[in-house]
Design a protein around this nucleic acid. Structure first.
Lengths: 258, 258
DNA sequence: ACGTCTGTGTACGCTACCGTACTTGATCTG
DNA sequence: CAGATCAAGTACGGTAGCGTACACAGACGT
């Protein structure tokens, strides 16, 4: 598999030698519509570095009723909590929401790589910190902001995760993910459309004006996005990104920048 | 400091030799009422192993308006996300809600210990997995269940965190934490009181019947509690528990300052 | 072209929860 | 003991979001 074709942003943050080791053990798979990558309360066979598409992680709140808790696109990894405890990811269900593809690797092999590839470990750890921030901020947002703002936040996060302004999902699916009525989504989307920030077609929402949308949204999105950028700065130079020097094994603590 | 007097449940899960190394670098401090252990967006100077009392972690949802995202008692650690990235914990504010005491250690020294004490690392990792589960489940719960159920969940989690049926907080504080009106808390508590599961005094709520309360609550609490027990089984023997460890201490990578 | 299916617009009554604010009761202070 | 302060109970109108339901429209297969 050609390393230079890897699109996953976490993988693109690790140096070429480690990247090769990882990619060698991966297989490229298609993420089919509504495919369940991980069932609720079952062991996780693979972890997936998403290359294209969108995967949602949802918590069970009732018999056969799930609400999304975080979102994974090409900036992330499906199954990251495995890195914290090999048996650590059973509360939630991972479902493909937008088809695409991913590099997948068997869980035990992934754990092995984490132990031998320090940059991979570091990137996954930092990604987990972002997920925790994103999830907790969204959770607070859920209990405080109205549906319109939460929908705006969701669309903006999805846009970042997919690197695409077009989000091919129906109102019904969006409603499920947000844990609200389908009709509420329709109403909110209409309002956003009136503001000129999005347009809708049957089965798809397109973000026309992200900047304006982000202004209409609550502050939660900006906090989440800033956190991602702070902990996982984008590598624009591909797999040859300059990588941070390993140093100061005694004290990796650093003071946050301004 | 006497190692045998350590009450923190995470510390009690690591073997005696590691425990001594940790405790040697800690100082025992009092957690005063309404004390802010970590301000929003500022570097974290210390991490705290809570020995008694209750600390809440809250996300900013508006100018000077915060909503709780998770809860820490003697079963946990204030500042755990530091273990994922030394600069990883700035989105939220940590406030003492119930006075008590804690063992605190300077952040850089904590990071150093993580790299040299594999059992400590393992316990903290697993605790982080629990926090992620708890936070995400609560977030979903926030957008789906009514105030009464969320209050019941909160009380049960607080009870586990404090190991005490008496939760010395006013309705006003509970309302702040849940992100709802003070009057709504009064109403819900009254309902729970009618059911005979709790009693209230001025400035305090006592759980009279945890089993029944947990039945009235949504399923979210049970999921959260089960996850804690699964990943961090209680050590009745003090310090001889065996949890899996990472094979390689490391992770000194720092993000390039931007 | 046809019926069929799935997605979207819209409506209606209902309830949980909100903002506000006033009253009563408990605790502290001088 | 008197007065001040803070917690808790209660009330009331307003509304966001709910469940349900139905009609219409774009897409699709035969």
């Amino acid at each position: 598999m050609l390393v230079t074709q890897v699109k996953n942003k976490l993988l693109r943050l690790i140096p070429a030698d480690e990247l090769c080791r990882v990619v060698d053990m991966c297989e490229r798979v298609r993420l089919g519509p509504r495919q369940i990558l991980h069932h609720y309360m079952l062991p996780m066979e693979y972890v997936y570095f998403v290359e294209r598409g969108l995967v949602s992680v949802a918590a069970r709140v009732e018999r056969e009723k799930f609400v999304e808790v975080w979102l994974i696109g090409s900036e992330g990894l499906v199954g990251a909590p495995i890195a914290l405890a090999a048996d650590a990811a059973p509360l939630h269900r991972r479902t493909v929401q937008v088809t695409g593809e991913a590099l997948r690797i068997k869980t035990p092999e992934f754990c092995g790589l984490l132990d031998s590839l320090p940059h991979l470990r570091s990137v996954v750890d930092r990604y987990l910190a972002v997920v925790l921030g994103q999830t907790s901020q969204s959770g607070a947002c859920n209990s405080f902001h109205d549906i319109r703002q939460r929908l705006a936040r969701w669309l903006l996060i999805a846009r970042s995760a997919m690197d695409d302004n077009e989000i091919p999902l129906t109102h019904g699916v969006l409603a499920e993910l947000l844990g609200v009525r389908r009709a509420s989504v329709t109403d909110s989307l209409e309002a956003l459309q009136t503001d000129g920030t999005v347009t809708t077609r049957r089965g798809s929402v397109k973000i026309e004006n992200p900047v304006e949308l982000s202004r209409l949204c609550c502050g939660c999105f900006k906090l989440i996005e800033r956190e991602y950028r702070r902990l996982l700065p984008a590598s624009d130079t591909g797999s040859d990104a300059r990588l941070p020097v390993r140093s100061q094994p005694q004290s990796p603590w650093m003071s946050p920048d301004s």
